[in-house]
Design a protein around this nucleic acid. Structure first.
Lengths: 359, 359
DNA sequence: CTGAAAGCGCTTACAG
DNA sequence: CTGAAAGCGCTTACAG
């Protein structure tokens, strides 16, 4: 009586029970056409009665197709990566692929190698690498990718001919944010960056720099504070800038969470946004519309990045199967979008002198 | 020249190349002891040269072990679920398990069934179900779980003898939050809830209700506003309460994101926290320490829930293997922790009359 | 210490 | 329309 539980029912058992061969059962579960309706029905009945579930692993082995996609992601506790993952998951499901997930905690480390090998040995049909390019944690990976036939899609990587990349144009985003402040009349614009070695952080910084340069505004080192994406670091960054760049009129903060920290620090000091300091963020997290005042920011559709990554996988796969001569990667760059709210629009355009403490 | 890429190298090819049998190669890659050092070395050299990677699928089939864990999660865009997932991932990695991920978008729907079947057919060795119990989306699941031998761990579910559950005591959390406000001297305490049909939302509400009842305070319907976990709904909830419960002195908001919305709405109205309204949240998201003023909230260690879920899987598995007579589930309940910050402590304890608009 | 044989649970040509 | 045989790439007893 103990065993109400399924010991695995196999195709052979079903075949015996139904009085047919195993490949007839196989034809039923795979919905092949060359089958008499009666046989199909009879076998199906047995399948249902025995609650037969085909073993996907056995199927994978004989078909040499795992119906599986390897996904490596970092930082799913943040808004962006979690949405990319959601996009990947939904698109993969639509195509009937399961996802083998690997969260990368320290992209700088050698566990990159282990994750990659594990995915390969599990015979994933493709790999999506949604891990920020930090420093050169990918030196090893690049070589390996070219050695394997498995389609490999990079997210968050500089476009590069030999690879498949889907990314958001962070440089353009940085320019957009800074250009907006410039055209609103601000000239003394500070910057709070993301972690030094993240590619996206660097690109946003470059965008800021070039926009300011193009407008003939200075962009000196003292106008820049280094953050780590957290609200806390935003707060620290602002305090630092208030010290090194007291004449600051506006600040481009490299993500919304840090912008939140900036808001809090300003509130504590009795300063107002945007009258005392205009603020622009990056990401457009859901909360930013509810900041007080609502935050001007740069929206990037990371969910779409996930979808496109899966699409790129499909494309790469087909190319591979059609024996495309050389493995040419495709590079897709999404343009971010400026969302203007009140944090960057001082109604009367009289920028107060933050330096003088007039609040 | 085209094909620099690996066509799959098999154990047979390695064996032939090394002049040994396949099971000798198998012994090398599995690090078995009964092997002469020379043979091992020679075979290893061939493995390295040919870049042989064992096929995990073939191995799974013959071993009848997938080294795989099925994980279903909802809402990874939120703080809690994403941290649970991180906890699961890390613990699983330590044990050498890969994760097959399924994001559940509409827990109410029948896709529950499909996800479950898919996981089973992929021969996962266990399933962690980190999907909130909403309505009775699990009626079907419960039956199915008992039919299969695969260990099944529920997160976010009411403790129940027959199942393995790991959860946070949301009821206690609600009591903690409300009790704190009561002992700070507040009597007129409002509530903004999470979505009606989420178990955790209901539990927090029950905690609030019982705490108030125990203190002899009213907890009428007009003191409650329904939210949906988002900042936007928090804002709406507050406005509603201001209308239906104007004498309100304090409010327990069922998560920090909604509390954030409450802050913003109050700021817009020129009201101050906690002088005009004391606020307590739930979750302790990283930002809440940077709210202005810092938010009193209830911390739950969802990362730990993930870790414990994996541990519970290991335990259930061992029990199963040792043929424990009946499948007795284990129920683990984590206690949340009150984090007191400034949003609930009015220095001079003079509660202003929000109703009168004296701010 | 090493190998020949069988088997894991399916599918894929190939016959008929 | 249906089945006997071989094979996917490993591991597991079993010999020796």
């Amino acid at each position: 009586m103990k065993r109400t539980k399924n010991a695995q029912v196999t195709i052979a058992q079903v075949a015996r029970e139904a009085g047919v061969s195993t490949q007839t059962v196989s034809r039923v579960i795979n919905n092949r056409q060359e089958l008499s309706p009666e046989t199909r029905q009879r076998v199906q009945a047995v399948i249902d009665r025995m609650r037969y579930q085909p073993n996907a692993i056995a199927r994978s082995l004989s078909q040499r197709r795992s119906h599986t996609l390897g996904v490596a992601v970092s930082g799913i506790e943040y808004y962006g990566p979690s949405h990319t993952l959601i996009g990947i998951d939904q698109a993969a499901n639509r195509l009937g692929f399961s996802i083998i997930l690997n969260l990368i905690h320290q992209p700088e480390d050698g566990d990159i190698e282990q994750v990659f090998q594990n995915l390969i040995s599990r015979q994933v049909e493709g790999i999506i690498w949604a891990v920020p390019e930090i420093g050169n944690n990918r030196a090893w990976l690049r070589k390996e990718v070219q050695r394997h036939a498995t389609p490999f899609i990079f997210t968050d990587m500089q476009s590069e001919k030999k690879f498949n990349t889907i990314s958001v144009d962070n440089y353009a985003g940085g320019k957009l944010a800074s250009g907006h402040l410039l055209s609103a009349g601000y000239r003394k614009i500070g910057l709070i960056t993301g972690p030094q070695n993240w590619l996206s952080a660097g690109e946003r910084r470059r965008g800021w720099q070039d926009a300011l340069a193009a407008a003939g505004c200075p962009s000196e080192a003292r106008q820049v504070a280094g953050g780590t994406w957290t609200a806390e670091s935003g707060e620290r960054g602002l305090l630092q800038l208030l010290d090194t760049f007291p004449e600051m009129e506006a600040v481009f903060v490299s993500n919304d969470q840090m912008a939140f920290g900036v808001y809090q620090a300003l509130a504590r000091l009795g300063k107002r946004v945007p009258e005392d300091l205009a603020v622009v963020g990056f990401d457009d997290i859901p909360e930013s519309a509810y900041f007080c005042p609502p935050l001007t920011t740069v929206r990037q559709d990371l969910y779409e990045v996930g979808n496109l990554a899966v699409q790129a996988f499909v494309n790469a796969r087909e190319a591979e199967q059609n024996g495309k001569s050389s493995f040419e990667g495709q590079n897709l760059v999404l343009q971010p979008q400026l969302i203007v709210r009140q944090s960057s629009i001082s109604a009367n355009r009289e920028r107060s002198q933050l330096a003088n403490g007039v609040s």
